[in-house]
Design a protein around this nucleic acid. Structure first.
Lengths: 355, 355
DNA sequence: TTGTATTTTGATAGCGCTATCACTACCCTG
DNA sequence: CAGGGTAGTGATAGCGCTATCAAAATACAA
């Protein structure tokens, strides 16, 4: 209509509805529409209604690029990981990506495998320059070096599945203690008394909590914990293999094994089979995390569902909020999101054979 | 310095270097810098050099948001998958994400599990409206419905790991036939003659090619193929379990098993162990894909490395090129990238016991 | 009622980049 | 050496949105 419009038509593929069209439709200024879209304060209810209706009628979706450009909002977020199990990683990525898309943030990935502390420090400093926030899954979220370097750079950090809440670090996690306790109770309710436990990697808080939950449930049920039935694992299939081997070589082997993650539980199943044991009739096995591994092996594993994808999404939202606040010069806010876990019962648990 | 600058400082957090600073540094106009960054035509070599130097010195990274806003370039790319193995998915995601970041494209994920053809059609139509291009891993890239719907919408599509090249579909893949042939030759060279083969999902071209490669190598070595040693699998752990069970129950069991992917190979190892067989001394097992599964199980699997992450990255570049061309009104170009595979030798193969 | 405080709205000016077109060098042919 | 190309470069004008501040509308006090 105007010269502007002509130019625009010449240039654009011209399909998506813009904020201006919505504004015209609602009889307000674009700025008001913007305010409504950002759930900002100070818009009269009647106006908001009118805008919302227009938005719905035109099926308007804000242009993420324009938004982040105008807001000059540092939208790059780093997700840094070190050799997690593939199953864990893929769920993490899916969730993070979905969250990032929702908030028009750009996600950048980085792997810091086999790094010395010094190398981690350098990497942290470097990443801090190029992104506005960082998401840290374990075990990185327990690294003092990384954390302090990132804090020094002043960029917000959110830990994911970190186990315990630390006063100076925002986190999104589940209640590992409680979950582990519930799982142990489930085993005890099935009739097990001699339960073997394969611990997680010692450098992760979550490992300790899972063990503590196990202990608590055992104690509460009046069952003694035989130190010989507790083995150290490292969250790897291999370590699960070794621990199970030792566990089953005892003269009084456990009737159930609680592994601190699914990979180790899968290993336990494998060892049991190799020894001619039937799972679950001769040995019950339970895992933790509900990664795809849990449903890949046979029988499918009873495990704790940790909503990793949802956690990643929340972590991104939390981070973005932190970034925004920081831009406004507000003090750093530390928050702790505890999400719900679920005990998933599958076919790897049965009552122990009475011997 | 100028009024502009003052305003800018007031508004922005003001850290990232912009194209203007690079331009000033190099003594050219921003437009020229832009051209260099987009490896566009028509920039004198000396000028390009100068700009590149400035870019390097200032450590300039283009702002993705501004870029896609200005270019009005549909930068949203969809990656659609259906229940792949987690290991496969995570590598796919990592590669795609890296590629997307490199090209300032936004990646959107979608899962189309357990969908009827009708549902796929609807989903395809819907996705076609919201993205500028689509990346299709198997088995989706073999779905006529999806492909035709996407073609009708006129958006570029790139198939990944599709097996065979189809004349009307760009693809990034490895030479499955050749790879499978090499693996078979490796087994034969180790002394195996009775080789069991577990086929992949029948709805995927790659499955057929892998089988054909196996056949070719056997025939070439003058070995007969016993139909009883060929079993259908579906790329799942479960199907690998069943196929191996049958294979090892024969009166003359194979001395080696070639599974069409790592998950099924892992299952084969598991069954062998359950039957008290040693891998590789009693039975050699090889897989395909080199997913993390291959190094998770014990012994680690000899397998074919398919560079999934790199393939995903290439797919994105290919797609972006297609999108750009389409915007310029050029005809659709179909291309076929065949990437290199590698035969990875680990510990799951040995010479057969002489019986 | 009038004046002031407060809320609500709009006009303006960019965010950092690229499409477009105009312009300057050159290089050809004849 | 004129006329018509063809690189190579720059000036201009937005892409769709939001920060900022001024203006208008409303609320509240005296």
């Amino acid at each position: 209509m105007r010269v502007k419009n002509t130019a625009r038509t010449e240039r654009r593929k011209g399909d998506a509805v813009t904020i201006h069209e919505v504004a015209r439709h609602a009889g307000v200024s674009p700025m008001t529409v913007s305010r409504v879209m950002n759930s900002n304060s100070n818009v009269r209810d009647t106006t908001r209604e009118r805008v919302m209706r227009a938005v719905r009628e035109l099926n308007y979706t804000p242009n993420a690029a324009a938004r982040s450009l105008a807001a000059a909002q540092g939208t790059r977020i780093a997700l840094i990981y070190t050799n997690p199990s593939a199953a864990y990683l893929s769920e993490l990525l899916v969730g993070a990506l979905a969250g990032a898309a929702r908030s028009a943030a750009q996600l950048v990935l980085d792997t810091w495998d086999h790094m010395s502390h010094a190398a981690e420090r350098v990497a942290a400093r470097k990443i801090a320059q190029s992104v506005a926030g960082v998401i840290l899954p374990p075990p990185l979220c327990e690294s003092k070096v990384v954390l302090s370097e990132l804090a020094a750079a002043g960029i917000p950090v959110v830990a994911i599945a970190s186990g315990r809440f630390q006063a100076d670090l925002s986190s999104v996690r589940i209640d590992d203690f409680r979950a582990s306790q519930e799982m142990t109770e489930h085993l005890i309710a099935a009739g097990h008394q001699r339960i073997g436990f394969i611990r997680g990697h010692p450098n992760q808080t979550a490992s300790a909590l899972r063990y503590e939950g196990f202990q608590a449930a055992m104690t509460q049920a009046g069952l003694a914990i035989d130190p010989g039935l507790i083995h150290q694992g490292y969250f790897t299939y291999r370590s699960g293999l070794e621990a199970t081997e030792k566990l089953l070589s005892r003269k009084a082997p456990p009737t159930a094994i609680f592994a601190s993650n699914d990979d180790m539980a899968a290993a336990a199943v494998s060892v049991a089979h190799r020894r001619g044991l039937d799972v679950p009739r001769d040995l019950s096995v339970v895992g933790y995390d509900d990664t795809p591994t849990a449903t890949t092996v046979w029988p499918e594993l009873t495990t704790i569902r940790q909503p990793i994808a949802a956690m990643a999404g929340s972590a991104i939202e939390l981070l973005l909020r932190g970034i925004r606040l920081r831009k406004d010069g507000e003090a750093r806010v530390v928050s702790d999101h505890v999400m719900a876990h679920v005990l998933i019962k599958r076919d790897s648990v049965a009552a122990p054979r009475k011997s």
